[in-house]
Each structure stands twice: as C-alpha cells, then as structure tokens.
C-alpha cells in the first residue's frame, strides 16, 4: 500500500471538517501525495417520510448539501496550501456501492469506505470521529470504530 495515497472519507459533519483541516495541515504543499475526498451516499430513510414526494425532496436537498460540502472541503485543503492537482473528489452513489445488497453490512458506510480503500490501493485512510458514548455506539454504530476493528493493510488517522 502507498501511504502517500490518502483516502479522506467525509460527510457534511463538523467531525469531517476537523479531519479535512488536519489532513490539510499535515500534507501542506507536499507534491508527492494524492488525496481523494470520498463521500459515501447515505440518503434519508424512506420510511420516515409520509410520501414519496417529500422523501425525494429531502434526498435532493441532502445531495445538494453534500456537493457543496465537498467543494468546500477541497477549498479547505487548498487554503492550507495543498496543491490542487493532488486533490480529487468522489461521490459514491448508492447504485455504485461495492458488493451485493445481500451482503451483511452492504449499506454500511464503513464497509463501503473499506472497499474503496482496497480498490484504490490507499495506504492512509482519514476519518473524523463523533466521540459517541458506548451506549450510542451499541445502538447506532460508529463508522470510525468499525473501520479500526476491520481494516487491514492501511494506516488509519482518526481525527477527534
């Protein structure tokens, strides 16, 4: 694995912003790195909306929010001196998810991030961390914890 090939997995959260800032500061204007900003699509749960129209609207709003965030994320890196030519953006749509829908954890964001890391031969993976309690982690899960437990052959930076 090439540790200078960095996969920076983000959503539109403050934790992600911290991970982006951290990566920007660490890499600075170094020329021999590559950074891919990855967002794994997680649309609002269909069942919590009363009808199809309101769900579709919420999905479009979420997509807009994420696209803007990804553009801002790139700007944040560039503001820290990162060279534009080493930064790329990837929006992983649900329809392009790795594996089969029958696989355990197929919909899990952590699972998709680890697939992307393997496929892209990324030697470093950066994620933010919410800092959830043990109870929250049990009930709702944690992307960073799952990654730490399951990833192989890759350095992980968990930014608190």
């Amino acid at each position: 694995m090439n540790f200078k090939k960095i996969l920076l997995a983000v959503d539109a959260s403050e934790n992600s912003s911290r991970a982006i800032e951290y990566t920007g500061v660490i890499i600075g204007d170094a020329a021999d790195f590559q950074i891919e900003l990855l967002y794994v699509e997680r649309m609002p749960e269909r069942d919590i909306f009363p009808d199809e129209t309101s769900w579709q609207t919420a999905c479009e709003e979420e997509k807009d929010k994420i696209r803007k965030f990804l553009d801002q994320a790139k700007s944040m890196l560039l503001n820290r001196g990162v060279r534009p030519e080493i930064v790329s953006i990837r929006y992983l749509k649900f329809s392009d998810f790795y594996g089969s829908p029958n696989d355990v954890g197929f919909r899990g964001v952590a699972n998709q991030i680890m697939h992307a890391q393997q496929e892209g031969n990324f030697g470093t993976l950066v994620v933010g961390r919410r800092g959830v309690s043990k109870t929250e982690e049990f009930l709702f899960g944690s992307v960073s914890t799952k990654i730490i437990h399951h990833i192989k052959g890759c350095t992980v930076w968990v930014v608190e």
């Binding site: 997680r42 649309m43 609002p44 749960e45 069942d47 919590i48 919909r107 899990g108 964001v109 952590a110 982690e137 049990f138 009930l139 709702f140 899960g141 944690s142 992307v143 799952k146």
Partner: peptide, 15 residues
C-alpha cells in the same frame, strides 16, 4: 416504528 439511518441498522432490535 421507523428511525433515521444509522451505521448499525439492527442495533435497536438487538437491544
């Protein structure tokens, strides 16, 4: 009952 998406979709049922 339905809930927002989470990383551990079956956590509530298991609890």
């Amino acid at each position: 009952y339905a809930y927002e998406s989470t990383e551990n979709p079956f956590g509530l049922d298991l609890f």
